[in-house]
Design a protein around this nucleic acid. Structure first.
Lengths: 227, 227
DNA sequence: TTCCGCAACATTGTCGACAATCGGAGTTCT
DNA sequence: AGAACTCCGATTGTCGACAATGTTGCGGAA
């Protein structure tokens, strides 16, 4: 995978990664209070590095800190997710537009190969998960890289995709949107291959809007079940 | 001003704000090494809170940290600024599109009033600075607020605008772009008043592209002078 | 009974000291 | 002379203890 960060630096960095992992996978529930002393002990470190990690996660929007009252795991309610997908639409649309002029033919071909692999995996798993899987994120991240825009890559990579993964862990059981998603990916690659940035941006934005509609419906169902 | 943060919380927050201010105004030069002990003493606090502040500033992209080697003020080279303006174009374009459907008539009217004030100030100051001034940022921030998208507001407010202000302090002496900028702002307000989100987005994107071209030329001149 | 205040507890915020690591000056070997 | 090695000072990373702040539950008064 291209999104994980195996290299281990300071304790604060390690704590940051471990916490991010726990939050994304749902091991730490949304809204859960994060006790500094407890976490520090669990990770075998002092509270200093852990506090720095919390600051970092706050910047990544994975936790919300309230002065003198501690940190809690962020809660992905409907509004927050809606906002997230809107921002993604803007950023990935732009990335896609630029990628159409900046990516090499080789990179675009690799992107196509990636989709072939995904398709095989889908058939093997009988349409289990795709738009919910890491393969999808790889596709999007490769396009972000294609923009050659470091800030764009940072924003999409280190913040947004973590939140997306978090959202997916929460709602992964349901949701079958693999076929339309794969088809849309193919269209996007076509536009990139034709160096049509405007079309590529349009398609990417539509793709993300579609993903949001799918997630949104899923949230509706869940709310009805819960109620 | 709507962008400053007068409320004082923990020492780390105070340090963060003071450092951000010093960096944005150029009091701390770009690329300058930030010594923890020295800064902690200057601010009259321990190194703990200061380190947390540095983590926070790293998240805001105002400083760059290298493990075991300290933190330095970010350097806004041509590529970084180019990336920044591209991201801004995407985000503010989206904000503008949504604002066209979400802002109240009253808010749009206030926006228009804001421009009137700016115009007066320009005439008084004989076209001194505008696209370089905080008035411009106010305009953009009001539109971000109009999107009703908290994530968008956070990104534009706490990160991007700080970098923009930093860029402006660096290049404020030159650059006269007040008239076209004001005119473009007026066009945008018109589109908002007509509830034409698509046009508003287009105009905002052009406006930011124009701003980047202006900044870019300025950087070119500076480089020639320096060389 | 219910609401308010107060006190004891739990948690966060801060500091100073110690350990680990990095960069550089001086030295030595080829 | 140039390059690499080594040691030393400086700086960052980490920890444990203390202070400040929030929270909780108990008891008393209306």
């Amino acid at each position: 995978m291209l999104l994980d960060t195996p290299q281990q630096g300071t304790l604060a960095d390690i704590a940051s990664r471990r916490l991010a992992q726990s939050i994304v996978t749902g091991e730490l529930a949304q809204g859960q209070k994060l006790n500094e002393a407890e976490l520090a002990e669990r990770f075998g470190m002092g509270r200093g590095p852990l506090r720095e990690a919390l600051r970092h996660l706050e910047g990544m929007r994975l936790v919300k800190r309230i002065p003198n009252a501690g940190a809690r795991v962020v809660v992905l309610d409907r509004k927050t997710l809606s906002d997230l997908y809107t921002v993604r639409e803007a950023l990935e649309g732009m990335a896609c537009r630029i990628a159409a002029t900046q990516m090499s033919d080789d990179e675009i071909a690799q992107l196509s190969t990636l989709l072939d692999q995904d398709e095989k995996q889908i058939q093997k798993q009988a349409g289990k998960v795709y738009a919910q899987s890491e393969g999808d994120l790889d596709f999007h991240y490769q396009i972000a890289r294609g923009s050659r825009n470091q800030m764009l890559m940072d924003m999409l990579g280190s913040e947004q995709y973590q939140l997306l993964r978090m959202c997916r862990y929460r709602t992964s059981r349901n949701a079958q949107r693999t076929q339309p998603a794969l088809s849309q990916h193919r269209q996007i690659v076509n536009a990139l291959a034709n160096r049509d940035g405007e079309l590529a941006e349009l398609l990417m934005r539509r793709h993300i809007q579609g993903a949001w509609r799918s997630i949104s419906e899923m949230i509706d169902k869940e709310e009805k079940e819960t109620a």
